[in-house]
Amino acid sequence: MGYLLQQLANAVPLAALYAALAFGYSLAFGVTKRADITYGAMFAFAGQILLLFTDFAYNKLWLVLPAALAIGIGLSFVYSLLTGFWIGRSIMRPLVRRSANTVIVAALGVTILLMETARLASQTRELWLPPLLNTTVVLWSDASFKVTLTLMQLVNTGLMIALIAAGALILRYTRLGRIWRAVTDDPLAAELCGTSSGRVFLIAYVAAIFFATCCGILTTFYYGTMDFGAGLLFGLKVLMISAAGGYSDPLKSAGGAAGVGFAETLWTAYGSFLWRDFAVFSLLVFLLVMSRRERAIP
């Protein structure tokens, strides 16, 4: 019983991460209607920029660690959001009305560009942060077993849930949310009603990059590093996990992705680790195929 509770506890931070990533991806997908692996690349890019500037501030400017981390966080947001704005305005918005293959090829090129930029900037060095908030918190215990998480896991989970809740409230109760839903339903009709679908596209795309940046920073804090190849890996993974709850509703997409996080953790605990990714991705492909809707052409 204790082992099962520990695995469920371990699944919560991963589920929160997947949910936050899926929520942000759904915001961008609502206006692009195209598969875009750039989102996962921006997740990794944010973590790599955090490491790069934290290392520079700590080892070159001789700042204390909190100040170095603050500089890394600030510049990670600046670089990531400006890069996301550039990608959305100069690459994705001009291509969304063209074929889906054009967007996929462009997204792959941007992903490679981001990964190589981060690698060259850090001179192919793998940078690491010191352990942060690694104090163990006991959630449940009996005479022989304790269910624990670290303080960093609890903080990350709380922040990601708060991020999803804030995004859901904005979409549901604000004018911006209503306009986003209108543009995702029918961009031309929204234009005829006086809404600039191009402006809404950029706002939604940058909002999605904001989610990816927050998740990238928090994940780097937890693991201590961000691999150069993580951009392509997470680009494909986020694309798949977001499909579990459907792309049409960010909150449903987040819920489905959270379920994938629990399934992945439980498979690791009770199944073969070597077959975990195969089993999870097979399930996601099955769900994606079964939920696909073809539109009849008269």
Score class of each variant (00 low, 15 high):
104 I>D: 04
104 I>N: 08
104 I>W: 04
104 I>T: 04
105 V>G: 04
105 V>H: 00
105 V>Y: 01
106 A>R: 06
106 A>K: 07
106 A>M: 07
106 A>G: 03
107 A>T: 11
108 L>V: 09
108 L>N: 01
109 G>F: 10
110 V>S: 06
111 T>A: 10
111 T>N: 09
111 T>H: 06
111 T>D: 05
112 I>V: 15
112 I>H: 01
112 I>W: 00
113 L>W: 10
113 L>C: 03
113 L>T: 05
113 L>M: 11
114 L>V: 05
114 L>D: 05
115 M>D: 12
115 M>E: 15
116 E>R: 09
116 E>N: 13
116 E>S: 10
117 T>P: 00
117 T>E: 13
118 A>N: 02
118 A>Y: 01
118 A>M: 10
119 R>M: 15
119 R>S: 13
120 L>T: 05
120 L>V: 12
120 L>I: 13
120 L>D: 12
121 A>L: 15
121 A>Y: 09
121 A>P: 00
121 A>V: 01
122 S>F: 00
122 S>D: 14
122 S>E: 13
122 S>Q: 15
122 S>C: 05
123 Q>A: 13
123 Q>N: 11
123 Q>H: 06
123 Q>M: 07
124 T>A: 14
124 T>R: 14
125 R>I: 03
125 R>E: 14
125 R>W: 06
125 R>Q: 14
125 R>T: 08
126 E>Q: 09
126 E>W: 07
127 L>D: 02
127 L>Q: 07
127 L>V: 04
127 L>G: 03
128 W>Q: 11
128 W>L: 12
128 W>N: 10
129 L>H: 02
129 L>A: 04
130 P>H: 02
130 P>Q: 09
130 P>G: 10
130 P>D: 12
130 P>V: 10
130 P>S: 11
131 P>S: 09
131 P>E: 15
131 P>Y: 02
131 P>H: 07
131 P>V: 08
133 L>H: 03
133 L>S: 03
135 T>P: 03
135 T>K: 13
135 T>N: 12
135 T>G: 08
136 T>E: 15
136 T>P: 07
136 T>V: 15
136 T>Y: 05
137 V>H: 06
137 V>A: 04
138 V>N: 11
138 V>G: 05
138 V>Q: 11
139 L>Y: 01
139 L>S: 06
139 L>I: 11
139 L>M: 12
139 L>W: 02
139 L>G: 08
139 L>F: 01
140 W>R: 08
140 W>V: 06
140 W>Q: 11
140 W>G: 03
140 W>S: 13
140 W>I: 06
141 S>C: 04
141 S>E: 14
141 S>K: 15
142 D>L: 15
142 D>A: 09
142 D>K: 10
143 A>Y: 01
143 A>W: 03
143 A>C: 05
143 A>P: 00
143 A>V: 01
143 A>K: 13
144 S>R: 14
145 F>N: 03
145 F>M: 04
145 F>Q: 13
146 K>W: 03
146 K>Q: 15
146 K>Y: 11
146 K>G: 08
147 V>Q: 11
147 V>R: 12
147 V>C: 12
147 V>E: 07
147 V>P: 09
147 V>K: 09
148 T>N: 10
148 T>A: 07
148 T>S: 08
149 L>G: 02
149 L>C: 04
149 L>D: 04
149 L>M: 13
149 L>F: 00
150 T>N: 14
150 T>Y: 08
150 T>H: 06
150 T>A: 05
151 L>M: 14
151 L>T: 12
152 M>C: 08
152 M>D: 14
